[in-house]
Amino acid sequence: MELEEYARSLLPLCFPLERDAHLLPGFELYREMVRARLLAMARVAFRRSFALLGEPTGSASFARYLAATPPRTPIIRELMGEFATHLVRDGLALAQAPAHAADLVRFEAAKWRVASASESPLAPALGEVDFEGELMLNDSLELLPLEYSVAATNEDEAGRHDPHTLLVYRRRGEDGVHWYRAPRLLAQLFAWVRSEPLPLPLAELVRRLVAERVAERVVERVAERVVEREVERDPPPDEAQLLLEELASGLTVAVERGVVLGSRPLPGLTK
């Protein structure tokens, strides 16, 4: 048998859902070894998820993942992200699972990725946060929107419905993975920093954010008062002050925790 025909016959061997009639005789051991190797890593990466779903359910989902999307990366650790994407959509696996199972998978996948995330060299070293510059976020940072408190170590608490955004990151030069809840305003700001196609001054993003939030609150209050037929009402809290406090403390904490690294001048601009 020539190399091409032989090599292509290995694919259904290694990644079938069930034993196939045309399995190469004698190669069953390879099927078991490939699956065992990859599944062992999944059990480590998704320890709590496998415990929550049950080992048979987790393993069965992994087998379905391999059959549906055999590994397309030579980097074995990257497969865990692919498996997570599959698992959160795997109705068979989640049908009997607690409501927070999918969020738990997402959380464990984020921790796995962050643990190995690369660090880009920064030259020169970034300075303080400069509102006229581009805000620089930690390379490893992941913004994780969640419906449930799955980051809690207590499994009862993990199932509490509590929508929030979790920041998952690794401090530059260190090994441990950290996470904490981001204030809503900060999560929105960081999402914009990441998604803007061109770098923008931080001040521009903050102005946009504040305008959007104030407008949102104005619409809410007008709607409330119209519905309640309130002609007069006590003065509302100073929205600008609230936003200032939330953003200032949020950014300060982010700097202290190494989530925000500093700022760099925008292209074409010098101080």
Binding site: R8, L10, F15, F27, V34, R37, P70, R72, P74
Partner: peptide
């Protein structure tokens, strides 16, 4: 053989 048409076997199979 370690990969076939972009699928990585994550094992080493004889040639």
């Amino acid at each position: 053989v370690a990969s076939v048409d972009g699928v990585y076997l994550h094992d080493l199979l004889p040639v």
